[in-house]
Design a protein around this nucleic acid. Structure first.
Lengths: 210, 210
DNA sequence: GTCTATACTACGATAGAC
DNA sequence: GTCTATCGTAGTATAGAC
């Protein structure tokens, strides 16, 4: 599909260079078409940018769907999930998210998203509403169960902290490589980070009930 | 100083738009000089970019110096720091780092650094060797004391997780605002996040000795 | 040291052929 | 639907005046 090829190239280029830095000429060349096809299909550079955001959101949703769906209330859960069960599910979802952060194929999505996080445009709404919001909501719901001692705002802050430990695997990539004395984060390093995430998160979630 | 004015403008523009997106014309205009002054003082766009990285590293070092220096071995520490003392110092430094992440004036530095983290260039060496490395090393040294049960690589991974919880306050800014239902992260939200960081980090550091 | 003027390249948008 | 051709604008680098 031509439009998908254009969108893939757009995500890659916008992610690397930002909206201003990326060139529609180059995106067209990378997807093997003429620049005017972008005008035709997406109405211009801005339209392409927004479409790229939706494209990313759709891919993330697809990828995280198994983990997020597994956390929806099941019929056989009974009236409420136990603290242990909620903790277990949350750890599994965080591990899935960490896996996504460590997967090299998601690098271009992340570059795009990180720009939007720091300087949000209309594209951020598409990213949050289309993908990130659902992950936050489902995590928060389980944190409420796992840590009933926390007030709502504290539970939200904890959600942020837990996601932060996943994000750093991607965002701090260059530093992580230097800290671990490797040129790139491979299978072995990924496993180490995931295990440490699991230990830390488990400690926080089961930890103290003040 | 003209060169400092140029550097400040360079950090701002390179951070927002990236190397390719930023324009030396605009940087010159913002610092009230002619574009050719950049060529004269820094040798061109690339030289300016590297100088901007060193400029950031110097500012971070200055800013984190009190917290990092306080963690150097003191004469009155005796032969070794206790677990409790190491934990306390580490928590204080993390809180200082979180404060920097939450301070709006550091936004442009962070944008610059985040680009380099994901797609490192020669500028990354200047950032890491000039500022970030020292913070990592001093944190790691205290983690070794606070968590003697961890192997060296696990201690490094834990360093990454702890910094991740600080980073997310800046990197995930737009999402954090949405999660906490505010238009921007103010004093109140900053205090909430720092407290949650402290609780989580304390839990991980004191937590379990397997 | 700092400026203006200029050469050259690449950008986004659009019109029109097929 | 997809292409080529063209227009106006803006980028970096550099030469040379002061």
């Amino acid at each position: 599909m031509l439009q998908d090829k254009i969108l893939d190239a757009a995500v890659e280029h916008f992610g690397q260079l930002g909206f201003d830095g990326a060139s529609t000429r180059e995106i067209a060349r990378a997807s093997g078409t003429a620049m005017s096809s972008i005008t035709y299909h997406f109405g211009g550079k801005e339209g392409l940018y927004l479409a790229a955001a939706s494209h990313i959101a759709a891919q993330i949703s697809t990828r995280m769907a198994p983990a997020v769906d597994a956390m929806q209330p099941m019929p056989d859960d009974g009236p409420g999930l136990s603290r242990e069960a909620a903790t277990g599910r949350l750890l599994a979802m965080l591990d899935g998210f960490a896996g996504m952060m460590l997967d090299p194929t998601t690098a271009s999505w992340c570059r795009f998203i990180v720009r939007e996080q720091q300087q949000p445009t209309a594209a951020f709404e598409r990213l949050y509403d289309g993908a990130m919001g659902a992950m936050v909501d489902v995590a928060l719901a389980h944190i409420r169960i796992a840590r009933p001692d926390l007030a709502e705002r504290q539970a939200k802050a904890l959600t942020v902290m837990l996601y932060g430990q996943c994000l750093v695997m991607r965002i701090g990539r260059a530093s992580v490589s230097r800290i671990l004395d490797v040129t790139d984060i491979g299978e072995e390093e990924a496993a180490l980070l995931r295990q440490q995430l699991r230990d830390s998160a488990e400690c926080i979630l089961k930890g103290v009930t003040r």
